[in-house]
Design a protein around this nucleic acid. Structure first.
Lengths: 243, 243
DNA sequence: TAGTGGTCTAGACCACGCT
DNA sequence: GCGTGGTCTAGACCACTAT
């Protein structure tokens, strides 16, 4: 149990920042993962500040993924981050790897649109406009990533009909087209979630997103699909063996 | 020039969210990179809301890296993101690569501490506590990344004296110890900047950080150092060729 | 119905940059 | 000195959850 909160009103440091730091120091100590924090009103009284100031402090912790808030219920210490290694390698299927570990993995295709990106088109050697599939991956009913996948419609005809409502793209490609897909290049970047991504992935706007873009190829090294994954930063990390 | 702002006060969507979206839609259109946005007071009048509500809307855009604010001056449309490919490969030195392109790269060693992490110690095959170097990399006087580097003090005696005040670790290792260091494994994750990282990297708290952890090895594949880079998400992306 | 977090207002003061 | 963004208060209303 830590001592009384000490807030310095004349240090030049914003009160909400001091409160956020004080609360962060108590996480895992006074407050353990899953615990409910004192209510905003309670904290406001304890720190002798306005409710809004407490709300701003909690906002800092929420955006950093340390605290989650539920309207009508309260604020809770976030559960320990479950990081999952998505290892590069011959097996490009997360669905399969997770399934073997007893997790329910589901891919939902949100939609398919024509997307005439000249650069991607050249990468895939397509002569017509590519098809872009938008999908979301859920692990145990929790959204983990959004994915855009670009295909050459001439090489994979009717893929839109075949993939929708089936969990694994890799299975569809293998069973329907005889193609074993593996990862080739990847580019990693850290982004901030926009409003749409926040809504679909159920994270606050501006939460960290691990973006992995690249090319998938078949066993002969021929390009199969261009992909862009946007993983929830609090759920995924990506391990790579470099050459 | 887009039309008048349209804000729906009874849609259930927060006003600051609507304002953020409206402003975002005008970026690159009404307001170009580097332009000053209307003042908070001006926007409050235009949207017929309180100043605080405008401030919250700008906060969303700031945290997403689309807008920067300067106290006393105004709010500005962020400059286009300069993404830099840090490619994996035989040459592990960013300093050298950037220098060849006419950028001034500087590494400042903030400090050296003993750090007895058993796991890292085993990875490096050390028999004593490791030394952890904390450094910051600046490109054209702008902070780009923070780095922690763990060394076996027995293998690299006096490294602390030799590295401090010299720009490139790779040069020091090559010239003083005859070691050519290259990247081996890497793990990528997207984090949110804490208060310290935000201050040093000059980004808002909770900004996206691309974390790259891994092992560097010499030409014989023997471990040389464990590293953890924390790159500003708005400045760096990382490209990898997978096996 | 009571308690919770989320939003919004009106008004105030501050620190900062510029002229 | 004035305009700027940043912070904070007091008070209000709302939507949601649980009882």
């Amino acid at each position: 149990m830590k001592g009384d909160p000490v807030i310095n009103r004349h240090s030049g440091v914003p009160l909400y920042g001091q409160i956020a730091q004080d609360l962060e120091g108590r996480l895992g100590d006074d407050y353990e993962p899953g615990d409910r924090l004192p209510s905003v009103a309670e904290l406001a009284e304890r720190y002798e500040v306005n409710r809004l100031t407490v709300h701003e402090a909690l906002g800092v912790l929420v955006r950093r993924g340390l605290v989650t808030t539920v309207k009508g219920k309260g604020s809770f210490v976030a559960l320990p981050i479950i990081r999952w290694d998505v290892r590069a390698g011959q097996d490009a299927s997360l669905t399969q790897a997770m399934g073997e570990r007893g997790h329910a993995v589901e891919n939902r295709v949100l939609g398919v649109v024509e997307d005439d990106d000249p650069e991607l088109r050249e990468q895939l050697g397509a002569t017509r406009a590519l098809l872009r599939f938008e999908s979301v991956r859920y692990v145990d009913d929790e959204p983990w990533s959004m994915t855009s996948t670009w295909f050459d419609p001439d090489r994979f005809p009717r893929l839109d009909e075949l993939w929708v409502d089936r969990s694994s793209l890799h299975l569809v490609l293998k069973q329907e087209y005889g193609v074993r897909m593996r990862r080739s290049t990847r580019t990693f970047a850290a982004l901030a979630a926009d409003a749409t991504e926040g809504q679909i992935l159920r994270v606050p706007v501006a939460s960290p997103i691990l973006q992995a873009r690249g090319l998938n190829v078949d066993e002969q090294g021929r390009p199969v699909a261009a992909v862009e994954h946007r993983f929830r930063g609090d759920r995924i990390q990506f391990s790579v063996e470099l050459g």
